[in-house]
Design a protein around this nucleic acid. Structure first.
Ligand SMILES: [Mn+2]
Ligand SMILES: [Mn+2]
Ligand SMILES: [Mn+2]
Ligand SMILES: [Mn+2]
Lengths: 154, 154
DNA sequence: TTCATAATGTACCATATGCTACATTAGGTT
DNA sequence: AACCTAATGTAGCATATGGTACATTATGAA
């Protein structure tokens, strides 16, 4: 009876486990990008603020040890997001810059949106740090749309 | 010059790296709970729907293999969230039930809030799967508040 | 130029989370 | 009762991410 089920109309409602499993898979994929996104954003920020991004500064900003930064940077270099040489500063490649910009844009939008709901700056910044990696283009657009008419009441 | 900086007034704005590092640490802590939360919610759902939660059903719903489910359940049992015996079904302990309820409540609120912004059911369910683990009590309250007066226009 | 120190790198360890392949068990069928 | 199959468990592998301890390098001060 539960064998050959015809493609149901409401995928996520009737699909049951399939839809839920797909969503969780996508969320896990988002998490896989999360580290690179936060690092790229931090590197871009350091370059903008101090002229260059050093391992120590990244470690301070990211709240991890320099060892963790080192290994992650190695992964990101292999992935083509950064370029660096032993004992030198860390640079973003073109894809890396794009990742950083995209992530910062999302970050700022999420923060602005939460703030517009009356959420405190502390909570908004903290929650955004996680939420920013889970907003689809559709949701991001909705956040931006909700922000536009923010000066007046409907 | 950047050595002995007096405690700045606006912690997150002037605190610079310290605040950012703290936020990222909190987000990593959220991620550590994420797996248990999703599992607890899935177990509660299966018990409600089918009377019991079996490893195979969890694997299907979570989109992973039964091996991964097994190991995670072992961790959750050690943590006191579930109780199970070899070849038997999986039960939620009292803390496990609380975790499941709390998570489902958050999940539903996030989905409802996103839907209220005009986001599609598919996108709302998908994004909520990630966002649900990153909403502070303050943000959750704001979402609920924004939902209450949803029937009429302001 | 030498040297002290901070920055960087490396070796090794731990946990969480995925997987495939194979072993074992439970439960219904014959 | 014997057996087949699905469910469950286990061994072993991989990657990502976090750490401590120690080695090496770069750099400014003396
Ligand atoms: Mn982040
Ligand atoms: Mn960010
Ligand atoms: Mn989730
Ligand atoms: Mn997340």
């Amino acid at each position: 009876m539960a064998t050959a089920k015809p493609t149901s109309s409401k995928a996520s409602a009737a699909g049951g486990d399939q839809g839920q499993a797909a969503n969780l898979r996508l969320t896990r994929r988002d998490h896989a990008r999360e580290t690179s996104e936060d690092y790229a954003e931090a590197i871009a920020g350091l370059i903008a603020e101090k002229g260059e991004a050093r391992v120590v500064d990244l470690a301070k900003r990211l709240g991890v040890t320099h060892v963790t930064v080192n290994r992650t940077i190695a992964r990101m270099q292999k992935a083509g997001y950064v370029s660096t040489q032993p004992y030198r500063a860390i640079f973003l490649t073109e894809p890396g810059r794009a990742l950083a910009q995209d992530c910062k844009s999302r970050h700022d939008t999420v923060v602005a949106f939460l703030r517009s709901l009356g959420i405190s700056e502390q909570a908004a910044e903290k929650d955004a740090e996680g939420i920013e990696h889970h907003v689809s283009p559709e949701t991001l657009a909705a956040f931006k749309a909700a922000l536009k008419p923010a000066g007046r009441s409907v």
